[in-house]
Computed example of a mutant assay.
Amino acid sequence: MKRSVLFAVLFSLSLHAFAIDTKLMVRAKAKDAKFVGSSIGGAHIIVRNTINGQILAEGITTGSTGNTGLIMKTPKDRFAQLADDKTAGFLAVVDISEPTFVRVEVISPISRKNAQVHASTELWLIPGKDILGDGVVLEIPGFVIDILTPNTHQYIPLESIKSTGLDVKANIVMMCGCPIEKGGIWDSEVMEVKAVVKKDGQVFGELTLANPSRNLFEGNVKIDGAGSYQVLVYAYNPTTGNTGVDIINCVVTE
C-alpha cells in the first residue's frame, strides 16, 4: 500500500514538473473608445479550460484607459500596438503542460451592473508561448447611463411639479468612463439621447435631452396627473451603432 501511494505521488509530481507557466495578457476595450481600467472599476476576466470548465486564471483589469492620441487619433498600421505598460489589462499566468484550448470571458465594467456586457473568445494556449503586448482584446459596446433625476422609487407630490414639470437628468459616459460633451472626442452632438416616459404602463411622453455640460444630459416633461411613472433614458450613436439604456420607476402622488 505504501509503495502504491508513493508511486502515485511521484507520478503526480512528474506531471507537474513538465507544466510551464504561460502568460496571456487580456484587455477590455470600449467600442469607439479606450481601455476599461481602474478609473471605472475594471473588467472581470476569467480564463477557463473549454473541456471541463476549470478556471485557469481570474482577475480584474487594472491600469489607465490608455493614450488618447494613439488610440483615437492616430491611423492604425498593421502590428502597431495600442497599449503601453500603463494601459489597463489583466496578465493571466496559466500553468499548462500541453496545448490547451481556453475560453476568455470578460464582464465589463464589473462595478456598473446596469451597463455590464459579457464578451468572450476562444484560443489555443501553447506551453511557454506567451501572448503579450496588446494581447487578447475584447470589445465592449455601449454606454454607461445613470439616471440622476428622478430617483428610483421616489414619491413626488403632484403639486410640486404640476407647474414646472418633471426634471429628467442622466449622467452618460463611454464604457471606459471616457467623457461625452459637445465638440469633444466623444461628441454628444452626433448622438441621439432621449427619455421615454410611461404612466401606468402607457407611453406618456418622449423628449430629447440636452447636454449642457460634460456627461450631463437633461430635459423636462409636463406631468398632469398622479400615477406610477417609468423613465427610460437611451443613447444611440448612428455612426458606431453604440447603444445604452437606463430605467427607473417613480410615483407621482396627489
Results as ranks from 00 to 15, higher is better:
residue 41 G to L: 06
residue 230 Q to C: 04
residue 252 V to E: 08
residue 101 F to T: 01
residue 156 I to E: 10
residue 241 G to Q: 09
residue 114 N to R: 10
residue 73 K to Y: 15
residue 115 A to I: 04
residue 104 V to E: 07
residue 166 L to E: 03
residue 57 A to Q: 14
residue 206 E to L: 11
residue 194 K to A: 12
residue 23 K to T: 11
residue 101 F to H: 12
residue 176 C to Q: 10
residue 170 A to T: 10
residue 11 F to N: 08
residue 32 D to K: 06
residue 70 L to C: 11
residue 12 S to D: 00
residue 42 G to D: 06
residue 199 K to N: 13
residue 169 K to H: 13
residue 171 N to F: 15
residue 203 V to H: 03
residue 130 D to K: 04
residue 83 A to F: 00
residue 170 A to S: 15
residue 7 F to T: 01
residue 142 G to D: 08
residue 232 L to W: 02
residue 68 T to W: 12
residue 71 I to S: 06
residue 51 I to D: 11
residue 35 F to V: 04
residue 225 G to W: 09
residue 63 G to F: 00
residue 132 L to Y: 00
residue 68 T to S: 15
residue 65 T to L: 02
residue 28 A to G: 11
residue 93 V to H: 01
residue 86 K to V: 00
residue 89 G to S: 10
residue 62 T to G: 02
residue 41 G to A: 08
residue 176 C to Y: 05
residue 63 G to C: 00
residue 21 D to W: 01
residue 58 E to I: 13
residue 4 S to N: 14
residue 63 G to H: 03
residue 15 L to C: 02
residue 239 T to P: 04
residue 107 I to N: 14
residue 196 V to F: 14
residue 233 V to T: 04
residue 142 G to A: 03
residue 145 I to D: 06
residue 23 K to G: 05
residue 209 L to F: 10
residue 90 F to D: 01
residue 2 K to F: 02
residue 194 K to Y: 09
residue 211 N to V: 11
residue 171 N to G: 14
residue 26 V to S: 08
residue 148 L to S: 06
residue 129 K to D: 05
residue 98 E to S: 06
residue 206 E to K: 09
residue 195 A to F: 09
residue 198 K to E: 13
residue 120 S to H: 14
residue 84 D to H: 08
residue 192 E to D: 15
residue 131 I to M: 05
residue 147 I to D: 06
residue 172 I to M: 13
residue 9 V to D: 00
residue 187 D to F: 05
residue 159 E to Q: 08
residue 250 C to H: 05
residue 208 T to H: 01
residue 219 G to W: 08
residue 144 V to D: 11
residue 201 G to R: 07
residue 172 I to Y: 09
residue 186 W to D: 09
residue 159 E to G: 00
residue 168 V to L: 14
residue 217 F to M: 12
residue 23 K to Q: 10
residue 213 S to L: 12
residue 218 E to I: 07
residue 198 K to T: 09
residue 234 Y to I: 10
residue 144 V to P: 01
residue 1 M to I: 06
residue 230 Q to I: 10
residue 35 F to W: 06
residue 88 A to V: 05
residue 87 T to L: 01
